[in-house]
Computed example of a mutant assay.
Amino acid sequence: MKASIQQLESSVNKQNQYNLRNEIEIAGVDESESESLQHIATLVSKKVGVNLKEEDVDEITRVGPKRGSNSRQAPSKDLLPRTIVVKLVRRTKRNEILQAAKIRRNLTSDGIVEGPSKKLYINERLTKDTRLLFRDARQRSRQHGFRFCWIRDGTIQIRQEEKRPAITIRSSDDLDKHLGPMSAPNSA
């Protein structure tokens, strides 16, 4: 019965990840009351070298609870701005933006929003379960000497060396099978 529940949870997560296939996340853009998310997304895409038209976008929103919503409370500098989620009409445009962002890794908020320059990140959108599994995969792959750990189309891949084949990670069981258990931190 436990195996059946895990299989159902995995199936639901896979379907939810599939539903996010046309979405990207833009992290690191400061928020303002009068911001235009369409304008910000257009500027970010231009900065990576992709022409994003209004008709390419289905929906744009910030995700997560609004921070510093009390007008008397100044937003803390330690809090990260909420992530912008851009749902695109076509997956090809999403892939074009992700590929261009991969080439231009050192993106900053200069010329996009006012304020101090901050590093921007453009990534594909992941479900919570996939995000947590990816975090665990990155930690374990570093501990066990794997040089590469990445996401492509919502699927986690690891590779030990340049010429070796990639290994697909779909669950914690796959991590245990291919990388072994998480090592305990050394306490001196």
Results as ranks from 00 to 15, higher is better:
Ala166Ile: 11
Tyr121Lys: 12
Thr130Lys: 03
Phe134Glu: 12
Arg152Lys: 14
Ile156Asn: 13
Gly115Ser: 05
Ile167Trp: 01
Phe146Tyr: 15
Tyr121Leu: 05
Gly145His: 10
Arg138Gly: 02
Gln139Pro: 01
Ile167Tyr: 00
Thr168Asn: 07
Arg138Val: 12
Lys177Gly: 00
Ser171Glu: 11
Gly111Thr: 05
Arg140Glu: 04
Arg138Asn: 10
Leu126Tyr: 10
Ile151Met: 13
Lys177Asn: 04
Thr127Gln: 09
Arg170Thr: 14
Arg159Ser: 14
His144Thr: 15
Arg159Gly: 12
Ala184Ile: 09
Met182Lys: 13
Ile122Met: 06
Lys128Cys: 00
Lys163Pro: 05
Arg135Asp: 14
Ile167Cys: 02
Ala166Leu: 06
Glu124His: 04
Leu120Met: 02
Ile112Glu: 11
Thr168Ala: 05
Lys118Leu: 13
Pro165Asp: 13
Gly180Ile: 06
Leu133Cys: 03
Arg152Phe: 05
Ala137Glu: 03
Ser183Asn: 09
Pro181Phe: 04
Leu126Pro: 05
Arg152Leu: 06
Asp173Trp: 01
His144Trp: 04
Ser141Pro: 09
Arg138Ala: 01
Leu120Trp: 03
Val113Lys: 10
Arg138His: 05
Arg159Gln: 15
His144Cys: 07
Asp136Asn: 13
Glu114Gly: 14
Gln160Cys: 04
Cys149Lys: 05
Arg140Gly: 02
Asp174Ile: 06
Thr168Ser: 13
Leu179Trp: 08
Arg170Asn: 15
Ile122Lys: 09
Arg140Phe: 01
His178Trp: 14
Met182Ile: 09
Asn123Glu: 13
Arg140Ser: 02
Gln160Lys: 15
Arg140Trp: 01
Asp176Gly: 08
Arg138Cys: 10
Lys119Asp: 09
Ile158Leu: 08
Asp129Ser: 08
Lys128Gln: 09
Ser183Met: 12
Thr155Leu: 13
Ser172Val: 07
Met182Arg: 14
Glu161Val: 02
Pro181Thr: 08
Phe148Arg: 07
Lys163Ile: 07
Val113Phe: 02
Glu161Cys: 04
Gly145Cys: 11
Gly111Arg: 02
Asp110Gly: 02
Ala184Glu: 12
Arg152Gly: 07
Ile169Lys: 00
Thr127Ala: 03
Ile158Phe: 08
Ile151Gly: 06
Gln157Ser: 14
Arg152Thr: 12
Ile158His: 07
Leu175Gln: 03
Leu126Ile: 08
Lys163Asp: 13
Arg131Pro: 00
His178Met: 01
Lys128Met: 03
Gln143Cys: 04
Met182Pro: 08
Ile167Ser: 00
Val113Glu: 06
Glu124Thr: 09
Asp174Ala: 05
Lys177Gln: 11
Ile158Cys: 06
Arg142Tyr: 10
Glu114Lys: 15
Val113Leu: 04
Arg138Phe: 00
Glu161Trp: 01
Arg125Trp: 00
